[in-house]
Design a protein around this nucleic acid. Structure first.
Length: 903
RNA sequence: GCAGGGAUAGCUCAGUUGGUAGAGCAACUGGUUUACACCCAGUUGGUCGGGGGUUCGAGUCCCUCUCCCUGCACCA
């Protein structure tokens, strides 16, 4: 008896091996290695980040790819790191400082505040990195990078300078997406449209000089009417034709504004008349430009009203002001009605408040290398998977808009532009600024501050975080490292950042390295909860992966996610209440992973209990029993199928193949079929079987290692499959098939017999179960064999079935009422002490025969169809004929049995 | 409005050039045979979202409709 516990306990094992790998520097990549290079850069999580299931899926895939590449003998660099995440981090630290010190960031000052952010980063910035380690990620932690490291920052400034000098970067006063909470501009990608239930206000403006005549206007934003400078109608709109050029009276502050005609106006919408507020609406701004209209800004940066002429609204929040403005209109008798209205409102991705279109001075980038980047994906130089995302990519690239790269934040890469002190005020307000202005010598752009820095003032803005992230595949590497590891092989990330990050990296790769940044992009699935909802903090439906790993093990979680990771479409991550303890939650999919680890552990425990030392040669393949040959053949097939699954990035296939082979083929069939060997006392038999088991297990553990690294390392070590001090994770997969010396025919024949025995065993168990004898070992079967080889397989068959014996008796005359069945090995009888009632038995066989008759009819129907026989492929017809023959022979056998019952 | 994806057993999902509908979980029956109850054996359960078409044959190809999801656009 073994004293090992009967259940696998992952926690201590996982910790032990991870530490051992770290101690032995197993994850370290050598840029001077002569091996072929393979690299992945991690999508850097936010430094404020906490591990969620999306990260787990994402990084499990990366780890699997990295470990697989190592097993193929490649020099692997998986480069980890974190992103400084401008808005998220600044907001977090700002909040903390306010809570702990009661100070705003402005009270603290830029320099002092940034110090606090760095302090925070040093103390708390490692959480997610440590969580990734818990998952087993084999990143080269010596190379951990941060997007605000010194070297990295140099790259960012260099790239900015280069793009400015080439004319790709310019500054201008534009309508941008403004976040009134974070007080910064945002890129278009950072604005999330949300379907909202708004109100559409219908109001009327009186025509100047025509008392009592009104123009009706509809708007969702009455709080901006103080900024109205015109009312627009469609030039073709018959209703308003005579009004064009006339003026209406804006109620407050009172002012006559012109009625203009513009094609943009939708005649169908609302009243067909659109109030024009160039300062607070993108479309209005453009109309204003076309008609040369004055821009009146009536909002502060934080979204409060800036309009001293209307004191009751001045200073109010925009939403409060909206209600009050409507009330004021009503009071004046100018509000006609209010309708419910569904529309999309743009929200700030980070701060989750409606963004405000706002005119401000910002830096913009006209994207470089757009054509190359578009072509790279179209031509297949970069392969995107699932393929359909390539269309999304192409569509965005074709409609690409300039990128607003400046942010009014402190935490980030400061814009490397300086203004000469005496001209600074003037330059800061200049309508436009670009490469041409360098000639004036009044501005300076460069990676280092100007030499006489005291005479210059630096631009205060920082850059969008993604302006540093897009350099990640090479800015993280030294030149020597780039030679070995750039371009990277695979990028694994979520499709939600295809524009934020992936597309931009491709353009950066072509612009600054003259080469693509990666060859394959794999977009992971979105993980939803059991109800199909997106996982989010606010819903609280996102389970903590660390807790799950503590219960089920990291390997169990990894396996579960890989098994349900589909090729396309989303993943539902199930969560159920524990039946015993309703306060506890269980995760059925992860249980499957945990159970699989346990199965693995127990199979190895079984192996260990049979004794015997290190891995030995199998010896003469020719003399191996069919079960041994069969499992070795399936092992060879597994290896090939795994290659295919990896090649097509079908991780769910990969996982199913491994699961199926081990559980159904190795455990359920092979181990059971050879169990008798260990009880035989025949040392030669035992050693032969052990050699096969060890060959299968040692290879299999290697195949499984990329998915479940900890348990496979542990079991390989326990079973003595590794030389002293060696790690499974550093072993190469053996590429040669085990059954190399055997002919196809020999292999097929052995496999055929083994399978026939397995299927027959199933038929017999079936028969036992029908009489509720599932556990009884006392059953003795009598067999009329169909084939000569059957006699050699009776012992194995007995174990598989759970029978006392199976006796061959070719001329057996069954007593009436003896339960019987037909299997590939022949006719089987199960004599019972108390015979079964003849009618019952006839009925049972009758049911079976009815089933067979149906099959025969179906098959004959097909073969009787001339069209089928003539037009279907020969192989299909032949297979159909064989099927029919099989059924017919079974039919004959059962008929005989039935007539014996009658006779 | 445009584009893409999805609908298969009670649940979560496979189903790769058209050729006998599968797995895991759940349910039910039986089982502690010396690896494993995180287990073993067996059973039940599906007109593959609706309709039409192509074909000897359709879950698979084509058309159409319904519902769900995701981008993009509009968003007064």
């Amino acid at each position: 008896m073994s004293e090992l516990p009967t259940a696998y306990e992952p926690q201590s094992v996982e910790e032990k091996w991870y530490q051992a790998w770290l101690d032995q520097k197993c994850f370290h990549a050598d840029e001077n290695s002569s091996k072929e290079g393979y690299s992945i850069v991690i999508p850097p999580p936010n430094v404020t980040g906490i591990l969620h299931l999306g990260h787990v899926l994402n990084n499990t895939i990366q780890d699997t790819l990295a470990r697989r590449a190592r097993r193929q003998g490649k020099e692997v660099l998986w480069l980890p790191g974190t992103d400084h995440a401008g808005i998220a981090t600044q907001t977090k630290v700002e909040k903390k400082v306010r809570e702990e010190e009661g100070k705003s960031r402005r009270e603290l000052g830029r320099e002092e505040f940034l110090k606090r952010v760095w302090d925070w980063k040093d103390k708390h910035g490692n959480i997610i990195i440590n969580q990734l380690k818990r998952l087993g990620c084999s990143c080269d932690w010596d190379r951990e990078r941060f997007t605000m490291d010194g070297d990295y920052s140099e790259w960012v400034a260099k790239v900015f300078t280069e793009l400015f000098e080439k004319g790709f970067i310019y500054r201008g006063k534009r309508m941008v997406n403004w976040c009134p909470k974070s007080l910064t501009a945002l890129s278009d990608e950072e604005v999330i449209p949300k379907a909202s239930r708004s109100k559409l206000y219908f109001m009327k403006y009186e025509l100047v000089g025509e008392p009592g005549r009104y123009l009706e206007i509809s708007t969702t934003r009455p709080e901006t009417l103080m900024g109205d400078i015109a009312v627009a109608v469609h030039p073709d709109d018959e209703r308003f034709k005579d009004l064009i050029g006339k003026k209406v009276r804006r109620p407050f502050p009172e002012r006559a504004i012109e009625i203009i005609a513009d094609e943009h106006v939708d005649m169908e919408f609302g009243t067909g008349a659109l109030k024009i507020t160039p300062a607070h609406d993108k479309a209005d701004f453009e109309i204003g430009q076309r008609h040369n209209l004055e821009v009146i800004d009536v909002l502060h940066a934080d979204g409060t009203v800036n309009c001293p002429e209307v004191p009751e609204l001045d200073g109010l929040d925009r939403f409060q002001a909206r209600r009050l403005a409507a009330a004021k209109l009503e009071e004046m008798g100018l509000l006609i009605k209010v309708e419910e209205h569904e529309n999309n409102v743009g929200y700030s991705e980070r701060a989750d408040v409606p963004i405000e279109p706002r005119i401000s001075m910002q830096w913009f980038l006209r994207y470089p290398a757009v054509d190359e980047a578009t072509a790279a994906v179209a031509s297949g130089d970069i392969q995107i998977r699932p393929e359909r995302w390539a269309k999304t990519y192409a569509h965005w690239m074709e409609n690409i808009q300039d990128w607003c790269i400046s942010r009014q934040l402190w935490w980030g890469h400061q814009i490397p532009v300086w203004y000469r002190k005496e001209k600074a005020f003037e330059l800061k307000e200049a309508e436009s600024l670009d490469v041409k202005d360098l000639a004036s010598k009044d501005i300076y752009v460069g990676t280092e501050p100007p030499e006489d820095a005291e005479n210059w003032i630096r631009d205060e803005d920082v850059m969008d975080t993604w302006f540093s992230s897009w350099l990640w595949p090479f800015a993280t590497m030294s030149e020597r490292e780039q030679e070995k590891f750039y371009p990277t092989a695979d990028l694994v990330t979520g499709p939600d950042i295809i524009f934020f990050w992936v597309a931009r990296m491709i353009m950066a790769g072509y612009s600054f390295k003259q080469e693509l940044p990666f060859k394959n992009v794999y977009f992971t699935s979105l993980i939803r909860d059991g109800k199909g909802r997106k996982m989010s903090k606010s819903l609280g439906n996102s389970p903590d992966p660390i807790e799950i790993m503590n219960t089920y093990g990291a390997d169990g979680l990894r396996f579960a996610l890989m098994r349900i990771a589909p090729v396309d479409s989303d993943i539902r991550f199930l969560e159920e209440k524990d039946k015993k303890d309703p306060n506890k939650k269980v995760y059925p999919q992860v249980e499957e992973g945990r159970n699989f680890a346990n199965k693995l552990y127990n199979a190895c425990r079984f192996r260990q209990m049979q004794g015997g030392g290190a891995l030995q040669e199998i010896g003469n393949l020719e003399t191996l029993p069919v079960y041994h040959l069969d499992i070795l053949h399936k092992l060879d097939a597994l290896s090939l199928n795994l290659d295919k699954a990896y090649a097509s990035y079908r991780f769910n296939d990969l996982t199913s193949l491994l699961y199926e082979f081990f559980w159904s083929e190795y455990c359920d069939k092979f181990i059971e079929a050879v169990k008798l060997d260990f009880r035989s006392g025949d040392e030669e038999k035992i050693q032969r079987t052990l050699a096969v088991m060890d060959t299968v297990m040692s290879r299999y553990l290697g195949y499984l290692h990329p998915l479940m690294p900890h348990i496979t390392e542990e079991l390989s070590s326990q079973l003595g499959y590794l030389a002293n001090g060696a790690f499974l994770m550093e072993q190469r997969d053996q590429s040669e098939a085990v059954l190399n010396g055997l002919s196809e025919e020999q292999i097929e024949q052995a496999g055929g017999i083994a399978e026939a025995v397995y299927r027959s065993a199933s038929r017999l168990r079936n028969l036992k179960a029908e009489y509720h004898l599932a556990a009884s070992k006392d059953v003795e079967f009598i067999l009329k064999p169909a084939e000569a080889w059957v006699s050699d397989q009776l012992d194995a068959l007995s174990v598989l079935v759970g029978a006392k014996s199976i006796r061959i008796e070719s001329d057996y005359a069954a007593q009436k009422g003896t339960p019987a069945a037909v299997a590939e090995i022949g006719e089987i009888y199960m004599p019972l002490e108390g015979l079964v009632d003849i009618d019952t038995e006839k009925e049972r066989l009758g049911k079976e025969i009815a089933k067979i008759e149906k099959e025969i009819a179906k098959s004959q129907g097909k073969l009787g169809n001339a069209n089928f026989v003539d037009r279907a492929p020969e192989a299909v017809v032949k297979a159909e004929k064989e099927t029919l023959e099989n059924w017919q022979s079974k039919y004959a056998q059962i008929r005989d049995m039935l007539s014996a019952l009658d006779g």
